[in-house]
């Protein structure tokens, strides 16, 4: 799970991470911790859509100070947003809507940006993705895929950039995700409860320490956090320089063919994830090891489904890997 999140942090184009696991395995905790690990980003000061000052402003919406001023906008450094989509959120807050207060009191027709605007260039986290209303899920996937949020309601017409990494979590016992939805996520990981005593003791001890004194707990891990932040930063810079040899492409294609994944999304994600992993590990090219290491999370949810073999899809990937790479 940590690997998948880091890969998504290093290469946001990977297309989201889906985390499925039992209760009390720390899914939400891990995702929320991500915010502390991300290198800060530059935005145009006061822009509600987190616009990049280095980018072209033409696509930014009216209301963005960068566009209004015309001069070089002031840039500020902010933490990368990890926006939480709370359960029970209504559509108007997700996509944004008419600012009711200003409309009623001042008679102005103003757009109040929603969560999608806030999540631009960051992460959007949906806890219990399987409990979310279907129409909201569709909407999110659509925006995540197009990178743009188009609002046409209540007499306002706004389109603003909304590029974010969708992170969903859920418990398979509380209902499965629709199959169409599954392969929209780039990576999918399964989380299980650790079964050995020392790990469990450590988890309980750390959580307890955190509950009692969050500040000193955070301080203790600050060094580790900043090391990871450096790694992500370096990986992002290195990403473009990493070479993928034809051999690796062939290996990825063979693996996907063995598993019979539909479409080409599997290969693409596999290569991208392997590249991001190579970048995180500081290598210059994608290796067969990297490919093997990301294959389960990149392909698990893309197999032509035998619906009853839900638990077995990881096993199928492992088996295919064993076949291709006999030890």
């Amino acid at each position: 799970m940590k690997q998948a999140l880091l890969i998504a942090a290093a290469d946001p184009s990977i297309g989201g991470v889906l985390v499925f696991g039992d209760r009390g395995t720390g899914k939400s905790t891990a995702i929320r911790a991500l915010a502390a690990l991300l290198p800060p980003m530059q935005i145009v000061a006061g822009c509600p859509y987190n616009c990049d000052p280095a980018a072209h402003f033409a696509h930014c919406v009216a209301g963005c100070p960068a566009r209004a001023g015309g001069a070089t906008p002031a840039a500020v450094s902010v933490p990368v947003p990890v926006v939480d989509l709370p359960l029970g959120a209504t559509e108007d807050r997700v996509v944004g809507a008419l600012d009711l207060e200003r409309a009623l009191t001042a008679g102005e027709r103003a757009f109040e940006p929603g969560l999608l605007a806030r999540a631009n260039r960051g992460f959007l986290y949906i806890d219990e993705a399987n409990l979310l209303e279907d129409f909201l899920v569709d909407l999110l996937l659509d925006v995540a895929a197009s990178g743009e949020n188009v609002v046409e309601r209540e007499g306002i017409s706004v389109r603003h950039p909304a590029r974010f990494v969708l992170v969903g979590s859920g418990n398979p016992e509380e209902g499965e995700l629709r199959p169409q939805l599954l392969d929209r996520f780039g990576l999918s990981v399964e989380v299980t409860t650790p079964q050995d005593i020392p790990t469990r003791v450590e988890v309980v001890r750390r959580r307890d320490a955190y509950d009692r004194d969050p500040a000193s707990f955070g301080a203790r891990y600050a060094a580790g956090d900043s090391a990871i932040r450096e790694r992500i930063f370096a990986a992002r810079a290195a990403l473009k320089t990493i070479t993928v040899s034809d051999d690796m492409l062939t290996e990825a294609a063979t693996l996907c063919q063995t598993l019979g994944t539909d479409g080409l999304r599997g290969e693409l994600t596999l290569i991208r994830a392997a590249r991001a992993l190579a970048a995180l590990e500081g290598r210059a090219e994608v290796t067969s090891m990297a490919l093997r290491s990301v294959a389960p999370s990149a392909l698990r949810h893309r197999l032509r489904r035998d619906p009853l073999d839900e638990a077995g899809s990881s096993v199928r990937v492992e088996r295919a890997l064993m076949e291709l790479y006999p030890v």
């Binding site: 709370p86 359960l87 109040e112 806890d127």
Partner: peptide, 21 residues
């Protein structure tokens, strides 16, 4: 769904709402 909302509140000690503007 209500249980999930309660669970989130119990886990994080706060309730986040994004509703009705």
């Amino acid at each position: 769904a209500v249980a999930a909302r309660l669970g989130a509140a119990l886990d994080w000690g706060e309730v986040a709402t994004e509703r009705d503007g």
